[in-house]
Simulated assay, not measured.
Amino acid sequence: MNSLRIIGGEWRRRVLRFPDSPGLRPTPDRVRETLFNWLGQDLAGLSCLDLFAGSGALGFEAASRGAARVVMVDDSPRVLAAIEANARILEADERLEIVRSDALRFVNSAGSHFDVLFLDPPFHSGWIDRLAPMIAGVVAEDGVIYAEAERALVGCGSWRTVRQGRAGKVFYHLMRRGKADGTE
């Protein structure tokens, strides 16, 4: 069993456990800190979609920082069982919705828009390119996308990278609809 700690908000310093799973790379503390500096430390009232939830690091971090609704999607029963166990430990059930689904199927049937999309799919699988044409169906007009990839990204669908960084082999990006490219 692996572990990570929540770095901010209500559950700061709480440790979460998650299983080994192919392609699972929890977002490192330093990168999460940068991300939540970009987004703002207080996510009160926002809705977030963690489309490839994996360890749950991004979704739990958003909930810890006051997000009103966090939907965590993954298709691995083992991974989802760990996310559900962590949600029970944190007593986070009312803010979290945990969904077993393939990312494409979920995006096609979501029926609601989110303020923040966390998009951290397994690398070298083409997920971001496959999802790009459908992103507008789940991200609010003024919503943002946080994406991790094996390469630098110009954007995803109508969203363009406005901030980016690199940690080891991981390129991370903050995207806004129709904005110009920038670096961080």
Rank of each mutant, 00 (worst) to 15 (best):
M1I: 05
L4S: 09
R5A: 14
I7A: 11
I7R: 07
G8C: 08
W11V: 01
R12Y: 05
R13W: 10
V15D: 04
R17S: 15
R17V: 14
F18I: 09
P19R: 12
D20K: 11
S21V: 05
G23V: 08
P26I: 08
D29L: 08
R30Y: 04
V31Q: 06
F36K: 12
Q41W: 14
D50L: 03
L51S: 00
G54L: 09
S55R: 07
S55I: 08
A57E: 00
L58M: 13
G59Y: 01
A63W: 14
A63E: 07
S64D: 01
R65A: 06
R69N: 03
D75Y: 10
S76I: 08
R78N: 12
V79K: 02
V79T: 13
V79P: 05
A81C: 03
A82Y: 14
A85T: 15
N86P: 10
R88I: 07
L90A: 07
E91Q: 15
A92W: 08
A92H: 07
A92Q: 07
E94V: 11
E94H: 14
E94Q: 14
L96G: 03
L96A: 05
I98F: 10
I98C: 08
A103E: 01
R105K: 11
S112G: 07
F114W: 04
D115A: 04
L117T: 02
F118H: 04
D120H: 12
P121C: 08
P121Y: 06
P121S: 08
P122G: 08
P122A: 06
P122N: 09
S125A: 15
S125G: 13
W127Y: 15
W127S: 10
D129K: 14
D129S: 14
R130C: 02
A132T: 08
M134V: 00
A136R: 12
V138C: 01
V139P: 02
V139W: 01
A140E: 09
A140W: 02
E141R: 13
D142Y: 04
G143Y: 05
Y146A: 01
E150P: 02
R151P: 00
R151G: 00
R151E: 12
A152V: 11
A152N: 10
V154I: 09
G155A: 03
G155S: 03
G155T: 03
R163F: 03
V170Y: 02
F171L: 02
Y172F: 15
L174R: 07
R176Q: 15
R177D: 05
G178K: 06
K179Y: 12
K179C: 13
K179R: 15
D181N: 14
D181S: 13
T183P: 13
